[in-house]
């Protein structure tokens, strides 16, 4: 766990003492940046202290909107089935809503993966878990698998052998969109197929449970599609669940995996494994991924606060050698 990024498990506890203790230990990037080379140990430590002091101001905050969005969104998504089957809601409208919910669900689930809604041991922990559980059902991606694989991504970011999201790498944006689809093909070792393989290799009880939950969710998905299709509701099933799932997965893969981490090769250091970029669709439609670097540095800063945290941390990141010219 020596290459675990700062801001993962220790910060999950929001224990400032633990945070301060562990911070300098993981200060050295795997591949030093040019600017880092020029900084001596004392300057780096001083920068880290300043960085932590600023970052802490953005950790936590108001999280109930994520809960409302997750549970309300899931209820709305479920209601699309009877509403379209009974002809109450036009299919094109339901399709657009379902695409938004399928894609946005990952954002709420992502906060739960990092326990940002309620920490382990909190009396509100069940809320955190149920936000995670329901958020990714529209994309047929169980929370247990999502959390395990996402934390592996944080621990081994851009490691070609150990980062589960490394198969998303592509030379350009067009190829990246293509790979979001290609990696989902039945015989390709990418996306959920790669996740299943990694979970089998992990072999832990959590991984076993995750594999079982994945199997159950996938079978339920197929059973619903087949039943709806053979009872006369194939178009409804396609436009409310099947197609929005594919669109959502591609959008998520592109903006949450490829865009902030490209190019991945050899970029495993703390300040270089994620990029600051300017999205053509803007900050919100890119799901706040322009400032995803902040998330990798401090996962306990909620998604909606990473932009403000970035501007507060910008001078320090620049001193660390991060390219801050895009934003």
């Amino acid at each position: 766990m020596s290459d675990r990024p700062i801001g993962e498990e220790p910060v999950l506890s929001r224990d400032s003492a633990e945070l301060e203790t562990c911070a300098p230990e993981a200060d050295t990037p795997a591949i030093p940046l040019a600017a880092e080379d020029e900084l001596d140990r004392h300057v780096r430590r001083d920068l880290r202290r300043q960085e932590l002091a600023i970052a802490k101001q953005f950790m936590g905050g108001t999280m109930w909107p994520y809960v409302v969005a997750a549970w309300g969104g899931f209820a709305l998504w479920l209601s699309l089935f009877p509403l379209t089957m009974l002809g109450i809601m036009p299919l094109p409208i339901a399709f657009v809503i379902s695409c938004i919910l399928a894609t946005g669900g990952y954002v709420t689930s992502h906060e739960a993966m990092h326990s940002n809604i309620a920490q382990k041991g909190s009396k509100y922990r069940w809320i955190n878990e149920w936000v995670g559980q329901v958020s990714t059902i529209p994309i047929v991606f169980p929370f247990s698998m999502a959390r395990l694989m996402h934390l592996e991504h944080h621990y081994h970011c851009n490691d070609p052998l150990r980062d589960p999201d490394y198969p998303d790498e592509a030379p350009n944006a067009l190829m990246a969109w293509y790979k979001t689809w290609y990696n989902r093909q039945p015989g390709v070792d990418g996306s959920i197929h790669a996740y299943k393989r990694i979970l089998r290799e992990m072999g832990t009880p959590e991984a076993e449970r995750s594999l079982k939950e994945t199997m159950v969710l996938q079978l339920v998905f197929m059973a619903v599609l087949f039943t709806m299709a053979w009872t006369g509701y194939a178009i409804e099933a396609a436009l409310v669940w099947w197609l929005p799932r594919h669109i959502g997965l591609s959008y998520i893969r592109f903006y949450l995996s490829w865009a902030p981490h490209h190019p991945r090769e050899g970029r495993t250091g703390r300040y270089e494994n994620t990029y600051i970029f300017k999205s053509r669709l803007g900050h919100v439609l890119s799901m706040c991924m322009e400032t995803h670097l902040i998330h990798h540095l401090y996962p306990n800063i909620p998604n909606h606060r990473t932009r403000a945290a970035y501007f507060a941390l910008k001078p320090i990141l620049a001193a660390r050698g991060v390219d801050v010219s895009k934003l």
């Binding site: 039945p186 197929m222 599609l225 053979w230 194939a234």
Partner: peptide, 19 residues
Amino acid sequence: FKWMPFLFGIGFIAPLIAQ
């Protein structure tokens, strides 16, 4: 799961095409 694409072709694609 190995045969799922075949089942998907019968269980979902076929009625989707028909409808």
